[in-house]
């Protein structure tokens, strides 16, 4: 694949402001999904110094649970309740289910290895990831399920948009659909809620204290096991929300979907500064936007390369990431 610079400049000009906006819009929507997943990675890293490789699969489970709720309530063809409560219930199912799964995984796959050498829980995480993905394969026979059709997304036969894909407003002549607004605003709302939780609440402060110095936190009487479990719960809830969002926006759920999404969200967390909550948010958006512009201006096959290229660039030039903690002296 050659990369003629002139072609790119041509394409940019051809696509114009409208095209540039569309790509930005695509990037922000996808980036919001990545940001939510990245938050779970960063929080768990912050508190346990563990890269939870199974986190992407928790996102996958959330997406499937959302689809499960939809099927129970009539399926995409004929849902039995109105759209707004339907979507709320899908979110609830996906988020709670993922949250519980995250807590269970922590309890049985990571907690017993709390005092083992750092590589042990990492390997356990990989094992959990394969276990979850393969369980999903067995349960779904490798089938792909689509939720964003019929009453939600639109008619798959005619392509006519359903309520989620109606334009909500336009910029530079290009539409922003209802589901795109839903994804971005829900992400923002969840990120605000998380920031408030971490900065204002007692649990949030205990999480910060435990992340900084677990032994000192337990010397204050903080039940660090419970704080860690709560961190996993919250991170997994966010990943579950991201899964349902992706299902409503793109539609496809598949047993392997957690792998690449997890890898990109991990990249986002690292680029933002692993352990930093604002870092994960900004990192997610950065990765999403990079992917969109790379695909749009250079070519579809460049999107993944560009994302991982950014990772390498950061590792070489600024390994602590955008918001990376410069080591504050322990006192």
């Amino acid at each position: 694949m050659h990369l003629p610079l002139l072609n790119i400049i041509d394409t940019v000009r051809q696509l114009g402001w409208g095209g540039a906006f569309e790509l930005l819009r695509n990037g922000i929507v996808l980036g919001s999904v990545y940001a939510l997943i990245a938050l779970g990675y960063t929080m768990v890293y912050g508190i346990l110094k563990l890269l939870n490789f199974a986190h992407g699969d928790i996102y996958m489970v959330g997406a499937f649970l959302g689809y499960g709720v939809l099927s129970i309530l009539g399926g995409p063809l004929a849902p039995t309740i109105a759209m707004v409560p339907l979507i709320l219930l899908m979110f609830l199912g996906g988020m709670l289910g993922s949250g519980v799964l995250g807590v269970v995984v922590e309890r049985f796959a990571y907690r017993p290895l709390r005092n083992a050498p750092r590589i042990a829980p990492l390997i356990s995480a990989l094992g959990v990831s394969f276990f979850l993905a393969n369980s999903a394969l067995l349960l779904t026979h490798g089938e792909r399920f689509n939720y964003a059709m019929y009453q939600l997304g639109g008619d798959p036969n005619t392509g006519l948009p359903g309520p989620l894909n109606q334009p909500a407003f336009s910029v530079a002549g290009r539409p922003v659909t209802v589901v795109q607004v839903l994804v971005v605003s829900t992400s923002i709302a969840l990120m605000i809620a998380l920031t408030l939780l971490v900065s204002r609440t007692r649990l949030g402060k205990a999480m910060r204290a435990t992340s900084y110095d677990r032994e000192a936190a337990s010397m204050m009487g903080i039940d660090t096991d419970r704080v860690i479990a709560s961190t996993f719960f919250i991170g997994s809830v966010l990943a579950g929300a991201a899964g349902v969002m992706f299902g409503l926006y793109i539609g496809e759920t598949y047993y392997l979907m957690g792998f690449l999404a997890g890898l990109k969200a991990f990249t986002a967390a690292v680029v933002g500064g692993i352990g930093s909550i604002p870092g994960a948010m900004v990192g997610g958006l950065l990765i999403g936007v990079t992917e969109a512009y790379a695909a749009g201006y250079v070519g579809g096959q460049w999107s993944d390369v560009a994302v991982f290229g950014i990772l390498i660039l950061f590792m070489l030039l600024r390994p602590s990431g955008l918001f990376g903690a410069k080591t504050i002296q322990k006192v």
Binding site: R202, A209, Y212, A216, I222, I328
Partner: peptide, 24 residues
């Protein structure tokens, strides 16, 4: 306990550190 080398929570404020003392 006042731990050896203080073990304060450096990225948190003085007030928040005190709050952690009263956590339970």
């Amino acid at each position: 306990i006042v731990p050896e080398n203080r073990r304060l929570f450096a990225p948190m404020t003085v007030r928040e550190n005190l709050e952690m003392g009263a956590y339970l």
